[in-house]
Design a protein around this nucleic acid. Sequence first.
DNA 1: TAAATTTGGTTTATAATGTAAACTATTTTA
DNA 2: TAAAATAGTTTACATTATAAACCAAATTTA
Lengths: 94, 94
Amino acid sequence: MSFAQLDPLLHSQLRLAVMSLLIGVDSAEFVFIKEKTGATAGNLSVQLDKLSNAGYISVTKSFKGKKPLTTCSITKVGIKAFEEYVNALKQYIE
Amino acid sequence: MSFAQLDPLLHSQLRLAVMSLLIGVDSAEFVFIKEKTGATAGNLSVQLDKLSNAGYISVTKSFKGKKPLTTCSITKVGIKAFEEYVNALKQYIE
DNA sequence: TAAATTTGGTTTATAATGTAAACTATTTTA
DNA sequence: TAAAATAGTTTACATTATAAACCAAATTTA
C-alpha cells in the first residue's frame, strides 16, 4: 500500500482537536476542552473515554469544591501516536 | 469555535487518498487507484460515487477494448475543497 | 466447446462510528 | 422551595465504512 494507515482513533475531528489541545498544555479541564472544541458534553465524554481507553490521555476525576472536576492530560503514548499520525497524514496532503 | 470544521467528505482515509492521488495527475483509472490505495473494489466504488456526487471528481465510464474502463479526474471544485481541507487540518497538527 | 477463472466493476447487508438527546446528581439562584 | 445551572454519563439513533455477494463479459483451461 502506498498510503500509510491513519490511526483511526486520531482520525476523528473531535478526538484530533482534543489531542491537539492537550499536546500544548500540561493538563486541561473538561469544561475548557468542551469550550475550545465546541463539542457537546455528551460527545466529548464519549470521545475522552476512547482516548483514555487507548492510553492516549489520562483522565482524573476529582472535585472543585463540591462540583465534579474532570482533568485530562496527554500521555507519552498519546504524544507518540499523535506524532505518528501527523507524519502519516503529511503523505496525503503534501 | 477555535477549531475549523474539517470537510467530512475529505476526512476519510480512503477518499483523502483518492483525492491526494488525483490532485497530482491528469486522470487515473479505477484499477490504478485501487492498487495505489489498497482499497477493495467495492469500497472504492462507493467512495468514488460520493466524491463524484459532491462534484469533487468526475468519473467517466468507457471501454478499453471490450472491458469496462472507469476513469477519474479531480475537478476545480475538488481542488478547492482539498486545499481548504488541508488548510483547516494544519490548524490541528501544527 | 463447455466449464472454470479472471477482470472490472456495482449492490447490499452488516459492523463500526459519531452524535445528540435524555438522564443523573448536585448546587446555586430567585 | 421551585427553577435553573453545572458537570458530567448513558443510551438510542443516524451516518459511515467495509466486506461479502453479486453481475456481465472476456479469457483461459481441460
